[in-house]
């Protein structure tokens, strides 16, 4: 469970992020008027990511081949790639809101997975689920610390909203 949720899916998104520079300038420029401050792209990536956080979707990706195919295509193309294009355009507020929400999501899901007495996925053991929860809580804490460190000591590299 840790492998699918916290390794495979993030790596698929990362693959999409790395694919983004292959898009031609023209495509990116056409979309850019529709993607001020990267808001549309970040919204798209977030909503698709939410779908792949549902326990039901994780189960279905293991049981049904077309759902697995949907995962392997949608996560790189609709999560990683839009994020890569949109994140550099996002201003301080957009990035801040997104990061706080992402951290809150890690804590919420981590807490749910750690305390739930019922198995949320039919394909994983309860022990796997608890472990996934703990890893998510750890990710939340690490992201908080990293963010706090960056805010206090990091260089303010965030450019003004375009």
């Amino acid at each position: 469970m840790v492998l699918q949720m916290l390794v495979q899916i993030p790596l698929l998104a990362l693959a999409g992020w790395w694919l983004a520079p292959l898009l031609t300038r023209r495509i990116v420029d056409t979309f850019s008027t529709w993607n001020r401050s990267g808001i549309s792209g970040i919204l798209l990536a977030s909503l698709v990511a939410v779908v792949w956080m549902l326990p039901r979707a994780l189960d279905a990706a293991l049981e049904t081949s077309w759902v697995a195919l949907a995962k392997f295509t949608s996560v790189p193309l609709l999560v990683g790639m839009p994020l890569a294009i949109s994140w550099p355009r996002a201003g301080f507020v957009v990035r801040g809101v997104w990061l706080v929400e992402a951290i809150a999501m890690a804590f919420r899901l981590g807490w749910l997975y750690t305390v739930s007495p019922a198995r949320l996925c039919s394909n994983y053991l309860l022990g796997d689920q608890r472990q996934t929860g703990k890893v998510m809580l750890a990710i939340g804490v690490a992201a908080c610390l990293l963010l706090a460190w960056k805010l206090v000591w990091g260089h303010n590299r965030i450019e003004r909203v375009r």
Binding site: V50, V51, D59
Partner: peptide, 23 residues
């Protein structure tokens, strides 16, 4: 995007009723 996202989420959760495959 929001409308499409909500439609997809509604479809994948049977109208926000089933978040697990057991339900």
């Amino acid at each position: 995007i929001l409308a499409a996202g909500i439609a997809v989420l509604a479809a994948t959760t049977d109208g926000f009723r089933a978040f697990t495959s057991e339900t």
